[in-house]
Design a protein around this nucleic acid. Sequence first.
RNA 1: GGGCGAUUGGCUCAGUUGGUAGAGCACCGCCUUCACACGGCGGGGGUCGCAGGUUCGAGUCCUGCAUCGCCCACCA
Length: 856
Amino acid sequence: MSVMPDKPTLDGLEAKWAPVWETQGTYKFDSTATRDAVYSIDTPPPTVSGSLHVGHVFSYTHTDTIARFQRMRGKAVFYPMGWDDNGLPTERRVQNYYGVAGDASLPYDPAWKPKYNGDVPKDARRELISRRNFIELCQELTGQDELVFENLWRTLGLSVDWSQTYATIDDRSQRVSQKAFLNMAATGQAYQLEAPTLWDIDFQTAVAQAELEDRELPGAYHRLAFHRTDAQGDVFIETTRPELLPACVALVAHPDDERYRPLFGTTVTTPLFGAQVPVLAHPLAQPDKGSGIAMICTFGDTTDVTWWRELQLPTRAIIGRNGRIISDAPEGVASEPYARIAGKTTKQAQAEVVAMLTKSGELIGEPKKITHPVKHFEKGDRPLEIVTSRQWYVRTVANKDRLLEFGRQITWHPDYMRHRYENWVEGLNGDWCISRQRFFGVPFPVWYPVTADGEANYEAPIYADAATLPVDPQSTTPPGFTEAQRGVPGGFVGDPDIMDTWATSSVTPQIAGGWDEPGSDLFERIYGDTGMDLRPQGHDIIRTWLFTTVVKSHAEFDRIPWKSAAISGWILDPDRKKMSKSKGNVVTPLHMLEEYGSDAVRYWAASARPGVDTAFDPGQMKIGRKLAIKLLNASKFVLGITGGAAPEPAAITSPVDHGIVARLADLVADATAAFEAYDYARALERTESFFWNFCDDYVELVKNRAYDNDGLDPAGAASARAALSLSLSAVQRLLAPFLPFVTDEVWSWWHDGSIHATPWPAAAELGPKVDESDSAYAAATEVLGAIRRAKTEGKRSMRWPVTSVSVVADQAFLDAVAAAAGDIRSAGGVSELSGSVGDRSVTVILAETDGSTLRS
RNA sequence: GGGCGAUUGGCUCAGUUGGUAGAGCACCGCCUUCACACGGCGGGGGUCGCAGGUUCGAGUCCUGCAUCGCCCACCA
């Protein structure tokens, strides 16, 4: 127990209580609890290379209120924290922070040190360093970032068990990712394939469907003349990408399109490049697009890939991995015009092709300017291209039905978020490409034999032994080989790629739960046969993190990964635009916590309905701060009356006291049900509403009786004190998930031990519920309201005496008033209180003088 | 094109089995030392996006429409 200060304040409560929770292990997971006694949370690992913003504070607070509720309900809460330091965002941050770039061909230099530390001059050239040096820098910088994050989370009051942390690039995560991969490869759920792939020409890597986004870009329809080989004239197509003309392998129109039906099966010659291509029919061709007939290029977009595959067309690839036109013309394409675009970017090539077409007269009319959606890698700047490459894939399309069924098995909060998932799964048009041609990530635990003629044989991958994980095939050798055999005929090569960041994030339950750790039964306790309890996350990553986790859980366990998914909304600017850094309106979270106090910021976050996009609103934080201050003062006042004695429900005898307790019982039931349905916002709103009513009306009504200054009514005093104590205890605990700092402070004034380790209020502790008892309290409140109104209208203070109050009402109301008469007279300063039957009215007559002269 | 959500006082939002519209902020007025001026009390202010329908009765259920926002899609 700690001493109740004379002037309670919120200042310093974060610094006071966060260390206490740490040293007392308040949030430590009970690793002996069995699965049914555990509540496990698949915490989102924040991207440490990014900056924390109010959106993080917002959504992590939501999860924390749930964690705290479950803990008070008696569950052993497994609430870990992960750091997402894997992947491109970290690479980019390291490149900019240290002024370096990775180069896989360079040897490792153990003595190398970075020249800059976040102070890279604008004109500095990037120093090329080895992959291993680069990765060491990534680990160094993310280590620093993690400390900043942890500090913020502790200040915010997240009830995370800080002994349960992981990083998505640490050995454990790598081991789990690789083990999951090996298992999928063994069952055929993962496979490799040489095929056209979405490709980012700047990052020089394959990307997955889930990482695409459309961006509106200006473009133009170019009307081109293809020549019929039967000399019957020309066929006109419209294209936005004339530079792909040499990659054209066919024309295609809808099978029912009368205009082109006669042409099906014939051959035409491409303008400029003179290639012979067939005219074919396919139902994906849209008669109302352009001229209704399109050129198929290898590859302009994903539709081209579909046509190419389904019509079994040849390949004329002209775009290289760097986004430039490759040097050699494809088979059947005129080499002279091709030489003029070879080596150029697509943009330069387009200008050149248009110039040549104009000269040859095969460009009909002026290009028609349009804007159209173009596919981009969500983290990239230039449009994606499609290039043929060998990649690893995880099966999704073949499992659609099962994945949809899993989506229905998961309980979604709010429920309608389920549609996002279903929409995505139903729209899948290719398996999940999980390999990336990057540096910082989890390598594939795979080698390939090198044949006698020096080529890697991808058909016979050598998988790492699971017991040796994690492995980096670039620096370790497969069983039975020596390092000297690397890259030589008869030897081996390591798979050079790393996994998609989601390939690791999608096993966060396994990573956090120590799935692969010998001798650990943690995973059984937190996952077991049911999956974890909760996955909290944003709706923007349903198609990535949520979906891929379900995919992995399906592949490994054929089971949903968690019972519930709680989807948070976004933080919007006050003007309802999505908050973004580029607009310069991101508020620094730590500054915000310092300015308003952590409890106040948490109040703002918890006021938002689950899943609802919410405006950043300092006003709401001020209200939260007022609530916290009110709790300090009301607690001090009530404890001053009761002396901090434990509540004794049996002492409650007054109808007014029964009234507040009955309302309290309703509140407890309501808040509990709301929390069980993940509606923390409702639980908060109800509790807050009760609490203000308790302070403004109930406390005012009974405080004189509770003091019992003249000692005439000890039973009445005991009754009031018991109800005050009972209410205060319950309210403090009901607010604990939202305002952890101030509630532990006020709880410590009359209890040993943290409020956060105390049971959630239950109906049983409130004593037997007395029905109808609310009417005395309700009547008292109404009459007191009339008295206050009279004083306000008479421009008197609330302490001004009242000569008489006459209540006219039905008998039931009069009885209720009579039952509360003592409290009404005392609280209102009423000399005479009378009642008569009739239409309800309350007449208040104020005293002529306030009587202060008499008193003195 | 398909899907989802939102639309309630100036602002931000509640309104859970359909029963005469609520809160906070803002605004106006009143009240100061005895829990709280980081306070208390009171007041004004809304035909609940529009149009139909079901019902004794609809902010609440059904249909259609409008506006805004988001997700998805094979937009040559």
